[in-house]
């Protein structure tokens, strides 16, 4: 039997937080969440979908009962994933592509990112380090494409130490200021890593 959590009468975002905690504590199984307002119900549903867990909802007499299944990924899903949709991380450690003329290098990087915005396989994470952080600041040629990729779902992690070193932290216009721990973790966990150094 699954666990039931009753979050009636708890103000937003309490129901989401309680559900998240319960899901984290659970290895595999079903959690039933009972809420008493449509907003909390929609938010709990978003949480489950955001985490990739199947969720169903039943509304009855002003109560909403959500059933969330946390389980091993289905075998079929996994096969599809292996073929087409490996989680891709992109490590960019330079503000140009390759060695040679700087203007050309910047243009190539901008165009490469543009190509990704139009491509089927999108990077899940984009990791910027050393002078790679310069493509995420005000006025950078590649900025627009990077913002588009972020809006398409890529998480952009920007090395904070590097921003400080180049004294451009204030000019950052895309992504999240991050650290070696998180960037390293993203590289180690990536199913496929492409790097430009």
């Amino acid at each position: 039997m699954g666990r039931e959590i009753d979050v009636r009468g708890i103000a937003c975002p309490g129901p989401v937080i309680e559900t998240k905690k319960a899901l984290e504590a659970l290895v595999v199984g079903v959690i039933e969440v009972v809420v008493d307002n449509p907003i909390s119900a929609a938010n709990v549903e978003k949480l489950a979908q955001g985490l990739g867990y199947p969720v169903s909802m039943e509304a009855k007499e002003g109560l909403y009962r959500l059933s969330i299944t946390k389980g091993e990924p289905q075998e079929e899903d996994r096969e599809v994933k292996e073929k087409d949709n490996l989680e891709l991380a992109l490590f960019i450690g330079n503000h140009v592509i390759g060695n040679g003329d700087e203007t050309l290098g910047k243009l190539l990087l901008k165009n490469f990112l543009y190509t990704l915005t139009e491509s089927q396989s999108k990077p899940k994470k984009i990791l910027l380090m050393n002078s790679g952080v310069k493509i995420a600041i005000e006025g950078a040629e590649a900025l627009g494409n990077l913002q588009t990729l972020e809006s398409q779902g890529a998480e952009v992690l920007v090395c904070g130490t590097c921003l400080d070193y180049y004294q451009i932290k204030e000019q950052l216009r895309v992504g999240k200021i991050s650290n070696m721990y998180d960037i390293g973790d993203a590289m180690l966990k990536a199913e496929k890593l492409i790097s430009f150094t």
Binding site: C12, P13, V16, K20, P38, I39, A42, N43, V44, E45, K46, L47, G50, L51, T148, E150, S151, E155, G175, K176, I177
Partner: peptide
Amino acid sequence: ESARLPVLPGAREYANFGLVPAGAY
């Protein structure tokens, strides 16, 4: 044009976790 919206870092991630205020609904 939704692709052009400037968005604070973290907002998309939290929205994906269902941390959307009642006012938005």
